[in-house]
Simulated scan of single mutants.
Amino acid sequence: MKPRVAVSHQALDTPVINGVKNPRKPGGYRDSGADIANALQSSGHADVLTSSTSPDPAMNHGWTFPDTESGILAAVEAGATHLWMNTILFASHPLQTSNKLDSKVSELFVVGQQPKLVESYNDKALVNDYPRKIGRCLLPDAVILKEGEDQLKKLRLPIVAKPIRGRGSHGVKLCRSYEELHDHIMELLSESPSILLEQYLLGQEATITTLPPSAGELHYKSLPPVVRFNHQNGVAPYNRTVAVTQNSRVVSPEEVFHDPAYHTIMSDCDEAARLLGCTAPIRIDVRRFKASDTGDEKDTGRFAIFDVNMKPNMTGPGRPGRDDQGSLSGMAAEALGWDFPTFLKKILDGAKMLKEIREASGVFDTGREDMGDDMQQQKYVSGKEIFQ
């Protein structure tokens, strides 16, 4: 029996957490939601339920349900067995809290992260610091700057300034002068009381999509790395500005075979996803260290993780005018011979029962022995390399 899938879009604003609000994406992910619903429907991989009768493939509206309590309940009442949560989740989200779903926790399957965990994991400082603290993954040095602090003249330039919570490349800027850094910090602090200042790595940038285990599997699986190029002022531009198909390429099997750094970072990404207990695909951005970063005579070749995206973009071809709207994750999947509908089917096969989604257990839960004594309170990361 085919799964009956309802795709959700973002209709709810995210809550303010520690004075920081995650910006809402214009359109609420309706574009990618429509791509997902249309591809699953056209391929026959699932019976797709839509919020309107016979939605137009050329339009974003009508394919998805709002992620409100009423929207989720409407999808369930329409007969959905699988909820594809193409939205930003958080601890107080109705998927987690609605008692009207309590009777369905062992019947409904969800494509999405655990709401109680993703609220913590959207904090870039916390997520980046945990693998560093336990010594499992390599990350650039970084420090939190809070409102009212004045440390700028001590920083080594260039440096990347970014929001603690953010979507994609929103608010991310490479600053090459103290004046530029000061101005950007003031702009970021108008949105948030604290920001992340991060060592800028000069080497090759890539992104890696990591999938959770599907039914019957035990291990996380990283797809081939996708190399980024044609940056704008040192930062890969947002997909709505420049299509990723125009500034990215998948690393070939030959490159992976001959360069052990690719194997290492793929394993690091598998481990990061496992540590975080991810229940849906994540996308991890990485950069190589170079000699000027480390002081070595030769480039080390190692990649460092500099960003973990808990909700990777999932746009894809299939609808009119969408042929160039493939995602970084979709590009990596194509290298394995998976077209967009097949990739979506692989993700759907990894859907978790709502009961499991609600019963979150991650590295920032107080009961976890491997969390470390001070991780819940610790929000500062090593800044020794970015200070002179």
Rank of each mutant, 00 (worst) to 15 (best):
K104T: 00
F364V: 09
D56N: 15
V105F: 03
S382P: 03
L117T: 01
M375Q: 11
S248C: 15
A261Y: 07
L196Y: 05
S98H: 02
D374H: 14
A280F: 02
P140W: 07
M85I: 00
L152I: 15
R368P: 00
V48L: 02
Y130M: 09
D183N: 14
G383L: 06
D47Y: 05
E385V: 04
V256D: 04
R240A: 12
F109R: 10
H184G: 08
I144D: 03
D67W: 04
Q151P: 05
G112A: 03
A243Q: 08
A280R: 00
P225V: 08
I17S: 01
D268F: 04
G28T: 11
V143N: 00
Y238M: 13
V16S: 13
M375G: 00
V256W: 07
E198M: 15
P225F: 10
H61M: 08
P253N: 03
M371T: 08
V172K: 10
L275C: 08
L188Q: 02
T14G: 13
Q376N: 15
I357H: 02
M375Y: 07
T366A: 15
D129M: 11
V227A: 14
R136L: 14
V256I: 15
L117Y: 02
D307V: 06
A206G: 08
V286K: 04
V381A: 14
E191W: 12
Q41I: 00
L336D: 12
P320M: 03
G79I: 10
V226R: 01
M1T: 12
A6S: 06
F90E: 05
G168P: 05
T342L: 13
S329E: 06
R228I: 15
R274G: 04
E147L: 10
F229P: 05
L201Q: 08
A304V: 11
V118Y: 01
E147D: 13
I357P: 00
H82Y: 07
H184M: 06
L201K: 09
D373R: 15
P224S: 11
I386R: 00
S51L: 06
E77F: 06
N233H: 14
T210L: 01
G168S: 14
E179S: 14
G216M: 04
G44N: 10
S382N: 15
W338G: 05
V76H: 06
V118H: 02
D373N: 13
